[in-house]
């Protein structure tokens, strides 16, 4: 949901990085999306094609990487990589767990084109 406004947030950061590093353009942007982020990767990608227009990232490609939830068990301390619909500890089966990864949206990598000298 609200992928377009999220994309604007991405664009703000990307534009700022390009400016800071004196880049000519942005060629690639990599985003990590937690499966519990409430953000749909395909929608984010299509929103990006709207958001990038007329910016330094006009030609940029967006790569999205989906991140599965990771929980730590409050009972046995094990960490388990789980699915969004079941945040249960895979080691002991307890559902008293804490989510430590999987609800985030992270700008992981930006590729900038700079003049060679």
């Amino acid at each position: 949901m609200h992928e377009l406004s999220l994309c604007q947030d991405v664009m703000d950061q990307v534009t700022e990085l390009a400016r800071k590093h004196g880049a000519r353009s942005v060629s690639r942007v990599k985003i990590q999306i937690g499966q519990l982020a409430g953000v749909e990767p395909l929608l984010l990608e299509s929103a990006f094609t709207i958001a990038r227009a007329g910016t330094v990232a006009e030609q940029a490609e967006m790569i999205t990487e989906v991140v599965a939830p990771l929980v730590v068990c409050n009972a046995c301390g094990s960490e388990s990589e789980v699915t969004p619909s079941s945040l249960v500890c895979l080691a002991c089966g307890n559902n008293d767990t804490r989510l430590i990864r999987g609800d985030e949206l992270i700008l992981a990598r930006v590729e900038l084109e700079v003049d060679e000298d």
Binding site: L6, Q13, R24, I106, A108, E111, L112, E113, D115, E116
Partner: peptide, 13 residues
């Protein structure tokens, strides 16, 4: 968006 610094890659053109 998490404010962590992203990895930056430079491509010389």
């Amino acid at each position: 968006l998490h404010r962590a610094e992203p990895e930056i890659r430079f491509v010389a053109v």
